[in-house]
Structure formats: structure tokens, C-alpha cells
Design a protein around this nucleic acid. Structure first.
Lengths: 216, 216, 216, 216
DNA sequence: TATGAATGAGTCTTCATTCAT
DNA sequence: CATGAATGAAGACTCATTCAT
């Protein structure tokens, strides 16, 4: 074997090792992330200690801090995941073509969000139940997130108004109402014992938001 | 002054002292209750220590435990207060006379609740933000409370349906939506910097819930 | 009524008041003393709080400190009572006449002590069980007391030796043994459910101490 | 070095580390146990705080709770040690051969017990002075222990009676006397400044118990 | 990289004692 | 004298984080 080959092989080795190491690395992270998701969703942030997380993850105490700087940071990352997934599911309503797409787009948004929430039951419960009250800084992050969501809703409403679809109203206030109705309905749907059909949920929530409870 | 008079006077004295003592007693309770309401609403249950409460209340550590068996019990009492006030503001819709009273009754409920919430800003924030995640037992209490509210809404919806006022829908789901919309809207209204007009809020929230966002 | 008579009457009044006051005073003390004796003997010094004592005595908190400078001082006084009673029951053996009086004197001592112990069951239990371990200062007092008792026993033994009644032995060591045997036997007798006959106890303990367990 | 060897070595390493860790672990326990033994024997259970124990043990607060669930549990373990050592030193008297072994066996028991007590001076002082009055549950344990000892003495006495060695007497009462005499004599011997010869002590105590104080 | 023993700041709670009425 | 509300020092215990191996 010539020199160059040896080098090449060594590099390959190194890469392999790195990849393996990296895979192991992310594996560890995943272990911890998954375990914490499970534990947090059952007992809540405050009621669950690092000890419980590492026990569930079958990882040593030190290892935990090898991958996460603190319990709080881990929690933040967990929620960050949710943020991006939900954010990814929501798309701004556009009016650049198609027939009556606005409504369909809204429905799509609602359904996609619900799917994300249902698909990440544990994370959703965490997000909806107690992602609040950790400290001022954290609360701020959460507010920003919900503000973003509510902004999207707000602008959709305004768009609807300009299109003559949405009635006269305080869109700011109504966007909060919309957000709240989705949050509560979903939390109930996820924590209730009976599993609900995603589509039905989406349809029910959307109907409520569009038409209210009145007959006419 | 004869013996009987002296006794009577002494008794009066004693009663007077007792009354004053009792007044002081409840005053202290009030001090602590108020201080904790303030502190909890700013920093949250977990982030605030007994030390902070007694500092705010300007009361000694021992005094705290003279009036409340534990930090947790104090918190529970705070929420219990809210529970009863809100519950007291909500009245079941009745149909035993009057013209179109149902709608007015709903409006009255919404407005009264909002008034209670606005009038107890700190408590409301505590209730809406983090009265959750303390422990299983406490969560249960909260759930029971919200269930009761949502039950009241539910039966109002069913009544409305039987009267032909409310459209066909999953009243259970919709009651959660209604509850959620009120919770979120109120939390935003109370934590936002701009104070909002109670009446306007009530009207906006009610409109949203009755008619949805659609024009027609 | 003439002046002198009035004065006399006033003085009598004053005395009467003083006496009554003093009687009340000692009455209060007695109340507290009795209550604490009861409570201490059941739960022990550390396990019983001032709150329990005043509850049992039906006396206000402040009143307690009107009669006793501290919980600890009260306890000391309780034991002091025991000390003097026991000390009063023990008399030095004398040889100044009578036939074989020494033995009878010993028996008398043992029986009188036992009577005191039995007659003050609560105090005895307190004294024998946990009058130890409060703090160095207190332990010292207790040691002094027991040393005095054991000294009395010691000198009785030495006297017995000089009279040819008591065998050759380390009287110091034996005096401790004697003391210990009485303490343990009495504690068992008093805390055991079956009440024992005082005379029988005295006889049994004395026999044991004089003749040991051996037949010959 | 082949793979299997590497693995073996790694395992050996791991084992080695574990063993060392375990050694360290028990070392820490020992440190704390020793420190508490010292502190407790001087100041007593109640008068000594966890702070003092960890100061003496030169260990952090958390470390204490790493090895013992509570101050009380530590204390219990300390006494448990004594229990088993003393219990191990006492053997039932048997009559299945040898010449006059019963007496020698008794002497052996007494001496072995005394050796244990002397060899664990601190623990003995703790046991004899204030292993009482902590709480009902603990007192019970202690009573059970002493009952066991006194039972052993009792049955030895009964055996002695059946063999014609021990005189007619209430063996129950006498067994308490014997126990008490040993307790008191040992406590005095251990807390007195002058160290005493074990053998002399044993002989003195045994003589006292067998023959009493009388000459004949 | 992985481990888990060690750390100590921080928390809640108790209770003997004081003092204004 | 009597009261009991108020005090605050002191205690036991927890748990997120660090670090030597």
C-alpha cells in the first residue's frame, strides 16, 4: 500500500469515526430529549427533576450536562422544536389565484397545526399547560411565539376584511380569541381519554371560528 | 357601679378587645394575601419564595405560618377566591320569561366575568398563566373548576340549540373553544400595557363567539 | 366605723388580696407544673412543645413565661422536685443502737424511695428516661444528683463492710450497680402495664442486691 | 492486542473503577458515621445538628444526604450497629457438657459484652444515655432490644433455677435488675475519667450479680 | 466521551421567646 | 396579671450543577 493510499484510508477512518461519533452524539441527545419529553409531559417542568430525566434516558448525570447546559435549556429546546413545527405548519393566506382559496387555506392551516399538535402529543401538552411561569425571560419567548401566531391570524383576518369575507371587528382581540379557542380545544382533545378524529376536530374548530355559535 | 355592671363592662371590654384582635388578625391575613397576590402575579408560584412574600408583606417569617399552614395552602386560597368570584358571576341561562332574555343573559355573564377578572387583575393572571403544573392534586382542582365552567357553557349551548338559536355543532368541543377564547383574550387584555374598556371587551368577545369571524 | 378600724380593715383587705393573689399565683404555677408533668411523661421533653403544655394547662402563652423563664427551666424545676423527694426518702444508715437496725434501715430506704417513685409516676418516668441529653450543663446536674445517691449507697456499703456485714468489693462499682438495678427495675415496673405491689418490689430488689442471684 | 482482549481490559478497567468507587463510597459513609458517632456522643442527638456532623466529617451537606436519608436514619443505623454487636456478644447458656460451664459461660457473656461496650465507647454512651425520648417509634425499637437482652438473662436465670444454682426469685424482676446494674456500671465506667480494666469490671459486676453485697 | 460522587446555595418550616394591649 | 399575636433564629432537606477519574 502506498503512502497516499494509507493517508486516504486514515482519513476515511477518521471520517468514519467522526461520523460514528457524531451519530452516537446525536443519539445521546435524542435519548435525553425523548426521555425529557416523556417525563415533562407527565409531571411538568417543576415537578420533574434531572434525576428522573436521566433515569428515563438511562444516561449518567454528567452525560446530561455534556449535551445540555442546564435543565432549563433542555426544556427550551423542547419547546423550540414545537415552535418551529407549528410555525412550519402555518402558512400566510395568499390571494394570488385559485378559486376561493382563502377559506381552503385557512382550513389547511388549522388542519396542519392540529396534525402537528396531535403528532407531538407530549410536547403539545407541555407547551399548552405550563410553558409559562418559569421566569420572565422565558415567558417573553413564549409571548413572542404566540404573538407571531396571533399576528398571522390577525393579518389573515385583515386580509379577509379587505376581501369582504370577514366582518367588521377588532382583529387584534379576535385573533387572541381564535388562538385561545384552538389552544383550549386542543389541550382538552389531547388530555381527554377519548382520541378524536383530526379532521373532525379541524372542521369543528374552524366552523366555530368562522360562524360562531349562532344559527344565522 | 354595682357588681353586675362591672362584670358587664368587663365583658364588654373583653369583647372589644377580642373584636379588635380579630380585626387585626384578619388584617394580617389580608396583608399577606395581598402581598402574595402581587408577588405571585409577577414572578409566578415557583419563582417566588416565602421570603419574598413576607418581605412584600412586611411581616415576619413566623407570622406567615401563623396564618397559612404552607406556601402552597396560601396559593390555593388565592385561587379559591378567584374560583368563587368567577363562579358567582356566572349564572345559568333561564328561559322562564322576559323577551329574548337568553342573549342578554349571556351578555350579562360575559360582562360580569370580565368585570371580576379585570377587578382582580393579579389573581386573574395567576389563574390563567400558571395555576397549572404544581402537582397532580392541584391540577385536578383546576380541571374541575374549568370543567364546571365549560359545563355551564355547554348546557347554555344545548339550551340555545333547543330554542333554535344555536346551530348544529359539537357543543362539548365548542364549549372548550368558548372557554379558551375568553381565557386567552382576557390574559392578553390584562397583561397588555393598554387598559381596555370592559364593555368593549365583553361585546367583542361575545360577538366573536356568537357570530364568528365571517361576514354573513 | 372609726379611722383606726378602717385602716385595720383596709390592711386586712390588702393582706387578703395579697394572699388571694399569691394563692392564685401558686395556683397558676401548679396548673402549668401539673400539665407539663403530664405532657412530658408521655411525649418526652423534646417531642413536646410549649404549645402543648399551655394547651394542657389551659393557660395563655404569655402566662407561661410569667411563671417560668423558659421551657427548660420548667423542666429543671420538675426534676428538682423529684430530686428533693427522693433525697428526702433516703436516710443514712446509722449504727447507734437497736438490734440489727442496719438491714431494716436499708429496707426502709428502698421502700421509701420506691414509694416516692411510684407516687410520682410521671416524674419518675421523665427522670429515668430522658433527663439526659439536653445539654452539658443539665447533664452535669443530673450526674451530681446520681452521684449523691450513689455516694449514699457507697458509704452504706463501706459501713456494712466495717461492720462485717458486706463482703469485700469495689464499693464504688457496686454502688453504681445498685443504683442501676433500682433505676431499671423501677422504670420497667412503672411503664409496664401491670401495676406491681410496692412492698413486693422493694423486697425483691433488696434481696437481689443483698444476696445476688446465687442460691448459696 | 485483539478485540477480545481490549474488551476484557475495558471491562477490567470498569470493574476496577467500580471497585474503587465503591471503596470510596463506603469510605465516605464511614467518615460520616465516625463523625456523627463522635458528635452525638458528646452533645447528644438533639443538641447536635447536621451542620455539626458534616463539619466534623469534612463533607458537604449534600453528601450527607447522599449516604443517609435523614439525620434520624443515621442515628438509627448507629444504634443498630450497637444492637448487633451486643447481641452477637451474648450467647445463651447451655448445659450440654463440660464441668461447671454455666458459670464460665455467664462470665464469658459479661466480659464479651463489656469488651464490646468499651471498644465502642462513643456508641455505648449514646446508647445508654439518650437513645430514648426521640419518638414513640424509636423508643419501641429500643424497648424491643432491651427486652431481648432481659429475656436472655431471664431464661439464664430460669435455667439456673432448674439446675439448683439460682435461688428462688422473680426472675423477671431480677433480670431487669441485672440489666440495669450492667448499664449503669458501664456508663459510669465509660464516662468516668479513669479508664478501668475490662477484666476487673467484668469480675466485679458478675460477683455483684451472683452474690449480692452480703458477706454470707 | 461517559460517569456518578460531591457540592452548597437555597427552600420551606418550626418553635421558644417577646411584647403591646 | 393575663393574653396571644408577632418574631426570627435555627433546623432539616433538595436538587441543579460541577469535576475528578
Amino acid at each position: 500500500m502506498v503512502w497516499a493510499d494509507q493517508m486516504a484510508e486514515r482519513d476515511a477512518d477518521k471520517d468514519g469515526r467522526k461520523q460514528r461519533a457524531s451519530a452516537r452524539r446525536s443519539h445521546r441527545r435524542g435519548q435525553i430529549l425523548a426521555a425529557s419529553r416523556k417525563v415533562f409531559s407527565v409531571k411538568g417542568y417543576h415537578a420533574c427533576s434531572v434525576a428522573e430525566i436521566i433515569a428515563e434516558a438511562r444516561v449518567a448525570r454528567g452525560t446530561f450536562y455534556l449535551y445540555f447546559p442546564s435543565k432549563r435549556a433542555l426544556f427550551e429546546e423542547l419547546l423550540e422544536q414545537m415552535f418551529s413545527q407549528i410555525a412550519g405548519a402555518v402558512r400566510r393566506i395568499t390571494v394570488d389565484g385559485g378559486l376561493d382559496p382563502a377559506l381552503e387555506q385557512m382550513y389547511g392551516n388549522v388542519q396542519r397545526v392540529i396534525e402537528v399538535l396531535v403528532g407531538n402529543r407530549d410536547l403539545t401538552i407541555i407547551l399548552l399547560r405550563e410553558a409559562v411561569g418559569l421566569d420572565a425571560d422565558f415567558d417573553h419567548k413564549l409571548n413572542v411565539f404566540y404573538d407571531r401566531l396571533s399576528d398571522i391570524i390577525d393579518s389573515a383576518l385583515q386580509l379577509g376584511q379587505s376581501m369582504g369575507l370577514v366582518r367588521e371587528c377588532d382583529t387584534r382581540l379576535v385573533s387572541h380569541c381564535v388562538l385561545g379557542s384552538v389552544k383550549e380545544a386542543m389541550l382538552r382533545a389531547l388530555t381527554g381519554e377519548a382520541a378524536r378524529d383530526t379532521d373532525e376536530l379541524a372542521r369543528g374548530i374552524l366552523d366555530y371560528n368562522l360562524r360562531g355559535v349562532f344559527k344565522v
